[in-house]
Design a protein around this nucleic acid. Sequence first.
DNA 1: GTGAAAGCGCTAACAG
DNA 2: CTGTTAGCGCTTTCAC
Lengths: 339, 339
Amino acid sequence: MKHYNKQSSPRNITIGDIAKDLGLSKTTISRAISGKGRIGAETKQRVQEYILEHNYRPNLVAKGLAQSKTYNIGVVLPADANLTEIPFFQSCLMGICEAAASMDYDVLITTVTDDDISLLKRLIDNQKVDGVVLTRSLVHDLPAEYLKEIGIPFVLIGTSEDEDIVQIDSDHEAGCCELTTFVLKTGCERVALLAGNQNHMVNRSRYQGYKKAFLETDKEINNDLVFLNLNNNILIQKAVNYVLERGVDCILCSDDFICSKVITHLEDKKIAIPDKVKVASYYNSNHLENHNPPITALNISIKELGITAGKHLIKIITGEPASHKSLVNYEIVLKKSTS
Amino acid sequence: MKHYNKQSSPRNITIGDIAKDLGLSKTTISRAISGKGRIGAETKQRVQEYILEHNYRPNLVAKGLAQSKTYNIGVVLPADANLTEIPFFQSCLMGICEAAASMDYDVLITTVTDDDISLLKRLIDNQKVDGVVLTRSLVHDLPAEYLKEIGIPFVLIGTSEDEDIVQIDSDHEAGCCELTTFVLKTGCERVALLAGNQNHMVNRSRYQGYKKAFLETDKEINNDLVFLNLNNNILIQKAVNYVLERGVDCILCSDDFICSKVITHLEDKKIAIPDKVKVASYYNSNHLENHNPPITALNISIKELGITAGKHLIKIITGEPASHKSLVNYEIVLKKSTS
DNA sequence: GTGAAAGCGCTAACAG
DNA sequence: CTGTTAGCGCTTTCAC
């Protein structure tokens, strides 16, 4: 049994203590710290030395109360169990943390499900954050709608059709188009798309990119080889069987999860990649990297996405202008699976 | 370009507003809300109705300032890039969030590396949290040492030799021992251990469990088949080759990462699992679940670990007694890879 | 250039 | 049972 007591450690030094010690007023100390307002160079110097020497740390909670700020940003993570497996959100988070720390903000997290945003509401109601970053966008996006309505600063990692929303994303459509085009140009005629939940904006964008590639290369789209909303392994397996029956040169997967399942099924059926059928993924991850043969995929610096989002949000919070939409780079990594 | 302004929304209603409206004092309102102190049933009723009707939400920051509390707990995540791939920390986090939300706390996160805990220090210095949960334990654990020294409440998800530290973990040693014993009893004579960084407490415990199984079953430990600190793929590959040369019936892997590499190498060498060599992992994950054949492994509810840790920490913060060490269950999932 | 005083929204003695 | 008063630690007018 243990019982800690925070008070046991010596009370933290305050601005008042400094004022007393230095024979100055609290106001002056405050000014020396913030740099705001007129203050004598020498006085400022003295205060700063004192602070350094005594290792003074301002109480951000008090500062926040006085300024109606928290110096916290909230990050909303999806609580869906199966998404826990995706490292995407963790990488995002790392990026956001990095950005926040560099601008002296802290990161508070909360979770939502597709139809329950009560925890997010609680966070806002409790006035614990100055702004929010959303890490996923749905077609009908409850969190975004809610945040927009109450008018709190927020950014979206992902894409939305709502022009009012500040968005950070990679250009999925362009990337998928480019990758698809590459495949088409290597001579593949029958190119399948196995895509996930079309309720997720990102999967819609990928589908758009796929279609665009056919348009731009003047080829007929293989509509009988397109499968959307492949939300579970059984559907994926069925889709794989379908496209194999109908003759397919290359299978494009909208994400790494689908791709890893596809690969497994192909292996089970002893269908060689890329000899019998080529495979590529619109989203890379370590799931695929460990695979043999290596899988061609679209690569995005997810952490960069998080960093950009964090910086953007804090800019908005502090009233600086921020662009409506910003894109981070992607790259196509060609591997043996499409050669 | 956008420019949000939080102030544009009507200022939040305060305890003072309620007091004025109801012709009461702020104290009374405070009491009606907190339930502390004597207060008339009827008055309490009136206040609560008012609150409901006007959707009043107390400002936790102000409350915190008055009580020297933040109602936040900090979660320390390792920033090492390769760890981002491990869903462990995200699952932990989900559990901690769940526990925190249920006790009206919020979760603030920060990151550390093996030798840099400056971000954790910043979090503490800024007085943003009432306590901290550590999600990994090293043999020489900087965060734990730091937190102990400054005397802030914290719990460790993992195991430490320091009796003063409140620990939440599954019984790795027992689990690994059990799994190893099972393998030994299926008739395997030459049982290898391929283990990771011995700087991580968890890997030490696993090694202990492995050794214990031999002791308890009165078998000679296969020291020539034990490889520790397999921190990268090359080392793992070498180890696999070694044990194959020396003759091995079963390869035990200390975690899913090592195991997935081992499997890949075996596949490359066309060595059939379990026919030529059996394989099992001391730590399960989706990396392994998708594999064919399915891999025998130790299963832990990581989210449960997080929930327990969160609840424990908050208990400690609020001064309730909490057990020094609590274990969450594990289970051995037997699959085809050891049959 | 510096300080006094009020206030951010809430809690916590202490009275009555 | 309820109100008064004084803070929590910092910012911010407004004087001097």
